[in-house]
């Protein structure tokens, strides 16, 4: 049987939920222990396609520091995190960079971009 214990991370209450595969309900899973609907939606997503935003850095030249913080502008499937890291770690940019600038477009064909999370001036 497909059962999992999960802690909801949508809000700080952190409800402890049990998720059971159940083909008779429309979502495909029966969720208990959640206090609100957002918990149920999160639980189903965790079972079907868990995703996370990746915050990390890339190398930068000609700036005050040698790392530029970046993030994926949407959550990527959890299984792709390390593959994304491999690509991100090969990139090197040059200052100046503006917050929001696209550093890597459409990473791994996910339709998701890696963007700068800080403005760094040229020195």
């Amino acid at each position: 049987m497909d059962t999992r214990e999960l802690v909801c991370i949508i809000c700080p209450i952190g409800c402890r939920m049990t998720v059971v595969k159940d083909d008779y309900v429309s979502l495909g899973y029966k969720v208990t222990g959640n206090t609100c609907n957002r918990g149920e939606a999160y639980a189903v997503k965790e079972m079907t396609n868990p995703t996370r935003v990746i915050p990390t850095t890339v190398k930068i030249k000609n700036a005050q520091l040698n790392r530029l913080p970046v993030k994926t502008n949407a959550p990527v499937p959890k299984g792709l995190i390390f593959e994304c890291m491999n690509i991100i770690n090969k990139v090197e940019v040059e200052a100046p960079v503006r917050l929001g600038d696209i550093i890597i477009e459409n990473i791994l064909g996910t339709g998701i971009d890696v963007v700068a999370t800080k403005t760094m001036e040229k020195i």
Binding site: L99, T117, K118
Partner: peptide, 25 residues
């Protein structure tokens, strides 16, 4: 905040998940 590059800042004030440097900027 400049070293806290992870997301999770500003959920209450901006209703979005910013990274530390974004929140600071």
């Amino acid at each position: 905040l400049q070293q806290c590059i992870h997301n999770g800042f500003g959920l209450h004030i901006f209703k979005e998940e910013l990274t530390g440097p974004e929140y600071a900027e």
